[in-house]
Design a protein around this nucleic acid. Structure first.
Length: 226
DNA sequence: CCAGACGTTGTT
DNA sequence: GTCTGG
DNA sequence: CCAGACGTTGTT
DNA sequence: GTCTGG
């Protein structure tokens, strides 16, 4: 699955990589992006690519209680087109979450520690997502969710799910293009040929309020008490 | 008809 | 155990 | 995803 | 909003 990721690159690098036209908001390097937080999201709006801030955890437009978003942080690509919470967004509100790494925990381990997955050249990539807009008493709330798929051979030793991710500009354009979503078979192939690498990360990542580059310091060897 | 759910994860 | 919040 | 809470009363 | 279950 995908419950934590990183976006360490400066805004200018993200803006250039994804050819974003507008400069809407500022954000700093993120080592530990957690559900419920405000995240940077690439959408097609009024014919243009725009980078906007949204809450991670999708609140469907029909929701009565926005707390539903706490549970809708991921959508399985195998079933996303059938689910009431996601199918409308799949047709009309697909998005990309710029990222340069994501964390997975090996729950089979005695004391699970996070592993940071990133590319050999540490390049930016896009997580496939959906977004929605909910009209609440305090105004409109934009929120999003990340699609997941079965793990590829790099991630599988740690965890059996991983985010749907795009590295090629054509893939990203295809996902954001108006009209029906690309077929699932296409999504399953993405990220399979790429040089993704697994790096043991710090147990500090477990705390969703901990930010900073210490997140990427490898965990001490198992059995090390301090 | 109305009421209630609408999701994923991991673990047993 | 299960839900909420980050 | 993990961490942390998990409750009611009356009073300000 | 839309579907399922009672």
């Amino acid at each position: 699955m995908c419950g934590r990721y990183s976006l360490r690159k400066p805004y200018i690098a993200i803006s250039e990589h994804f050819s974003v036209q507008l400069d809407l908001f500022e954000f700093g390097p993120r080592y530990n992006i957690a559900p419920g937080q405000q995240v940077a999201v690439l959408i097609r709006e009024r014919e243009q690519l725009t980078l906007v801030g949204m809450k991670w955890g999708l609140v469907p437009f029909w929701a009565k209680d926005p707390k539903i978003g706490n549970r809708l942080i991921n959508a399985r690509v195998e079933t996303v087109s059938e689910k009431p919470a996601f199918r409308t967004a799949l047709r009309t509100r697909r998005c990309i979450l710029p990222a340069d790494g994501f964390y997975e925990w090996n729950s089979a381990a005695a004391s699970p520690r996070p592993v940071h997955f990133r590319f050999e050249d540490d390049r930016l990539f896009g997580l496939a997502g959906l977004w929605d807009e909910w009209e609440g008493p305090g105004g409109a709330l934009r929120s999003c969710t990340i699609l997941t798929r079965p793990a590829n051979e790099v991630v599988a030793p740690v965890h059996h799910r991983m985010p749907v991710m795009f590295t090629e500009p054509e893939e990203i354009e295809g996902w954001l293009a108006p009209g029906p979503a690309p077929p699932v078979s296409t999504l399953e192939l993405c990220g399979r040929r790429t040089r993704l690498q697994a790096h043991p990360a710090s147990g500090r990542v477990n705390d969703p309020t901990f930010e900073g580059q210490d997140c990427l310091i490898p965990a001490p060897p198992s059995g090390w008490l301090f």
